[in-house]
């Protein structure tokens, strides 16, 4: 757990530096375009801009710790509240996208590695190179064109739920879970239908790096000395493939998942814009255009903290699977 501390510290420092790098007077920036002299002065006091850098930093950290991430200029609400309200929508998208990608990419990578030179291998290699070259927003748009405009199979790409439905009562914030809790199958299906295209878009994006890593790691493991030993001892194919090769290969794949998650959080922003998804990505884009800096900063910080949490989880899993990594309590 201690490993995360310097990361969090570093993230806060950079975020602090960025707020002070704003062109002109940060107080004017945070007070917004409509502010008068008095409110600018108030903001200046609150941020401690009249004091030394070190003091400013401690005030900054103090404010963050108390959950005071500033006010959104556009809505006038505290940034934390705005973010928390929209977070489930984004997470629903990201996690399902990641899940789809893992489910498709890992078997594909394994198949390609166990049959090098076969058609599966060629498809895998093509998908991998093409996949990392696809701009997410572009894939999303053309999925919409094909499945909404041409075929009419999917609902209009506007938000999490058709406006005809009422959103399910808030429990987890994840519509597909909340609707099931409420026992409303219709809403569940409606929410699911809305989710299909954006999650496939994200999944296609994440598929390439995971498949690439799985294939590479499996190839490495299969040609390793310990697999040769296992074969020399006549161990069964499934034993060699799963217990010897895949368990070893899964370690670098897990590490890659962290990186993939980082890319997904970025791609999420683009996908939310394409599908008018009311998540924090869309919120951030609006804030960016409106120069609503407190909101942007809150977005960046919360994404970084989320990413650190994911990395921490991966580290813990790695430490459990790999005896060579000492678990530091």
């Amino acid at each position: 757990m201690l490993q995360a501390v310097p990361s969090i510290f570093g993230v806060i420092v950079i975020s602090f530096v960025l707020t002070r790098a704003l062109p002109g007077d940060p107080a004017v920036y945070f007070a917004g375009a409509m502010a008068d002299k008095e409110s600018i002065e108030q903001v200046r006091q609150a941020l401690g801009l009249d004091r030394s850098w070190v003091e400013q930093f401690f005030i900054y950290v103090g404010n963050l710790a108390q959950g005071d991430w500033g006010q959104s200029l556009k809505t006038g609400q505290p940034v934390t509240e705005e973010l928390l309200k929209r977070l489930p929508a984004s997470l629903e998208l990201t996690f399902i996208g990641l899940g789809l990608a893992v489910l498709a990419a890992v078997p594909l990578g394994i198949l390609a590695a166990t049959n090098p030179g076969s058609w599966v291998d060629h498809i895998c290699r093509l998908l991998v190179t093409a996949g990392v070259s696809l701009p997410t927003f572009f894939t999303g748009l053309f999925l919409i064109y094909i499945f909404y405009y041409l075929l009419g199979w999917s609902p209009s790409p506007l938000g999490r739920l058709n406006i005809l439905y009422l959103s399910p009562s808030h429990v987890t914030g994840f519509y597909i879970i909340d609707s099931l809790i409420a026992g409303d199958l219709e809403i569940f299906l409606g929410a699911l239908a809305q989710l299909i295209l954006p999650t496939i878009t994200l999944g296609l994006f994440a598929l390439a790096p995971i498949a690439r890593m799985t294939r590479g790691a499996m190839l490495g493991a299969l040609s390793s000395d310990y697999v040769r030993t296992a074969r020399a001892n006549g161990l069964s194919k499934s034993m060699i493939l799963l217990t010897y090769a895949f368990r070893n290969a899964s370690l670098p794949v897990l590490t890659t998942l962290g990186m993939v998650f980082s890319f997904l959080l970025g791609a999420n922003v683009l996908v939310e814009k394409v599908f008018s998804w009311p998540g924090i990505g869309s919120f951030a884009i609006e804030a960016l255009i409106a120069s609503d800096y407190a909101a942007v900063q809150g977005f960046v910080l919360s994404m970084a903290l989320l990413f650190i949490t994911v990395n921490l989880t991966i580290d813990v899993i790695l430490a459990i699977t790999d005896p060579r990594v000492g678990l530091e309590e």
Binding site: S224, D225, Y226, R228, T229, A230, T243, Y244, R247, N248, L251, T321, D322, P323, R324
Partner: peptide, 10 residues
Amino acid sequence: NPRAALNPIR
């Protein structure tokens, strides 16, 4: 190279 010839995580 016996160390490499054994499964490192078993």
